[in-house]
Amino acid sequence: MSATSATSDEVLIGRIANGDRLAMQVLFARHHVRVFRFVLRLVRNEATAEDLISEVFLDVWRQAGKFEGRSAVSTWLLSIARFKALSVLRRKPELELDEETAEAIEDTSDTPDVTLEKKQKADIIRKCLSGLSNEHREIVDLVYYHEKSVEEVAEIVGIPEATVKTRMFYARKKLAELLKAQGIERGWP
């Protein structure tokens, strides 16, 4: 995220703290898709993920006056989203086993401009990314898709920065093992 948009987010939070509904709409429009995708990858159920993002932004509405700007707004949003998603998973552990949703996620690729071999490999990598545990999938998404630094991941997940690095390493190692089982040998680890 650029410094300009980070500043804008903080300005929006200030306005939300004063009860500005329009600022809330802007913040929601800016971040709700990424928050939705982060939550969906954890709970694997679209209806639950939709319910959760309205809860996440409702917390923003309620807590905006307490936001101190020590982290990016997007990091704060993902921290709230993660907490709520894990709370739901604790209440409804069956959500982790929603195979229908997982398969739907895996089968949506379509890249006609690449060779069949590369496409197959890309498909398998995405399938294996989906096959990671919640803990590993979460850190891979935060680093690769949500562009979070080591420090930001540590804040969102609530673990030391050194553990962020090692957890990412083990997530990638597990991914390599899953790929190997699918016939893709990359020579590492």
Binding site: R21, M24, Q25, F28, H32, V33, F36, R37, L40, R41, E46, A49, E50, D51, I53, S54, F57, L58, I105, T108, S109, A122, I125, R126, L129, S130, V140, D141, Y144, Y145, R172, L175
Partner: peptide, 24 residues
């Protein structure tokens, strides 16, 4: 891995208008 993780997430779509209606 980075490229495929981004593509995987981009295939996830977006929430319906219901989420915003519920929020407000």
């Amino acid at each position: 891995e980075l490229g495929e993780a981004i593509r995987l997430n981009e295939t996830l779509g977006a929430p319906s208008a219901r989420a915003m209606q519920t929020l407000f």
